[in-house]
Nucleic acid binder design. Structure first.
Lengths: 191, 191
DNA sequence: CTGAACTAACTGACTAGTAAGCTTTTGGAG
DNA sequence: CTCCAAAAGCTTACTAGTCAGTTAGTTCAG
């Protein structure tokens, strides 16, 4: 099973675009057509459709953290601003009319079986976001960084759900406001 | 198209149970088998599978508000406690191992086309929850009830997403804690 | 007798995944 | 620079199953 080839990259890109835009009912044939790849090539690179989806989701998660890390770098030395970085990225994403929620959340909602790779991908994403929020909350001086992190994760997920039906981008602003208030509350009680 | 018959009720109940437990890939044949209803009867009552799903989602939303209204009644005269009622209901629901998120959110994530009834159902649910939160926030003395309502809605949606992968029920407690903090913050600035 | 539901079979389209054989690309050895 | 073999990908066709939705004729109760 080849690991890094142009066809594989094109498949993952097409899968991500199609599944994100039209949902997980999209057929493998549609993906191969978009990727300009022959169908047997799919099964030379991936064990199954679910395997392709799982791999694609892992990459999508990695891409998000690459983007987020770059933003954190820009706010180096300012932990409170860093805590808001994920919400600022969402503020930028949501107004796009092509925004259809989070590809990771949508996949977990579409594949309810706990064994499906989509559930593992979302659980991993949550764990990584929680760890990041907790580290930044500690650096920002929160009294209970773990608790604040879990609250921020709720806002983070909530934005993506409301982004499914509310295309004004207002949800991301609301989350930013709420995150600011929760952080202020957590640091106030800390001093 | 008959409107209220036993077969119709059984179909809606079976559809709700199956689509919630196994996702929207479940076939009409599986639904008819569970409902003990013949397949042509489905199309005597509903225009299509999507129509059945849309009708079922509307009923699910109504059922939630029936349950919620009863809880609000029990807390009559205590607006701050009433604001927390939705979160308390979620606290009770999430630890169930059969909890697989919110049937409305899951449907909207599975059917991304804006024309699909699932999107309309979720938008309606959000509008109703927002209106309720705003009324209770006003009665609880929040400075900006509309803003607080939108923040609480984010927590409400966030819980359901985290409930997809985290089966401990902790998410609902976190949301309750965050909602309490946001409410305190909003009423403090009001006085 | 009317309407609701039933049985059973069917259409037509779509689906994931596989098989067999041919063509292109690529990278190292002479 | 050239040649060659292996890897990667292609085309075409196929299996075997599933699915939404329909048709026609039957049963049964009020």
């Amino acid at each position: 099973m080849p690991r890094h080839t142009p066809a594989r990259e094109r498949l993952l890109k097409a899968a991500r675009e199609l599944f994100y835009a039209e949902g997980y009912g999209v057929s493998i044939d549609a993906v191969t057509e978009r990727a300009k790849v022959a169908k047997p090539t799919v099964y030379a690179h991936f064990k199954s459709k679910d395997d392709l989806i799982g791999t694609m989701l892992t990459l999508a998660c990695d891409d998000w953290f690459t983007e987020l890390d770059a933003e954190l770098e820009r706010r180096d030395g300012d932990p409170p601003a860093q805590l808001l970085a994920p919400f600022d990225l969402l503020v930028a994403d949501l107004p796009d009319p092509a925004y259809h929620g989070c590809i990771l959340v949508n996949s977990a909602a579409a594949f309810l079986s706990p064994q499906h790779p989509a559930n593992h991908a979302l659980a991993t994403h949550h764990a990584r976001m929680l760890a990041l929020f907790e580290r930044l909350a500690t650096e920002a001086g929160a009294a209970q960084p773990a608790g604040l992190a879990r609250q921020l994760l709720l806002l983070y997920d909530g934005v993506k759900t409301r982004g499914l039906v509310d295309h004004t981008g207002a949800a991301a602003h609301d989350a930013r406001t709420a995150a600011t208030a929760l952080l202020a509350d957590a640091t106030k009680r800390s001093s």
